[in-house]
Amino acid sequence: MDLWLSILAGTLVAGGSYLMMSGAMLRFLLGLVLISNAVNLVIFVTGRMTYAGAPFIDKAVGVLSADAANPVPQALILTAIVIGFGLFAFTLALALRAYSEMGTDDTDEMREAEPKTEEKPL
């Protein structure tokens, strides 16, 4: 199972990188979402991929059972997903604004901050 998830994460990174190379803002964003999902999968795999019990201590026993799942990676992923969600919303709004301001979705065509014109050196 670990192997399959690793391959899946690798495939997602590959696909995401390919999309990011295209230069179009929207594809860049979709690529980023793919890669961040791949990273979440990587964190998920670090918590062992087995059928496990809930990580609660039984009152009668008093210690954690040996087959309990590791809850930390899940908490990490949850945090990462929430943060990623917020960033994605912002970036989507930024892409929309950039498109309506500059009339292009191609990052190579956006030359407002770094103009193409040659200026005479001092």
Binding site: M25, L94, A95, R97, A98, E101, M102, T107, M110, R111, E112, A113, E114
Partner: peptide, 10 residues
């Protein structure tokens, strides 16, 4: 402003 949006994209 326009250059700010462009700078922000990068």
């Amino acid at each position: 402003l326009k250059p700010q949006i462009d700078g922000a994209v990068k």
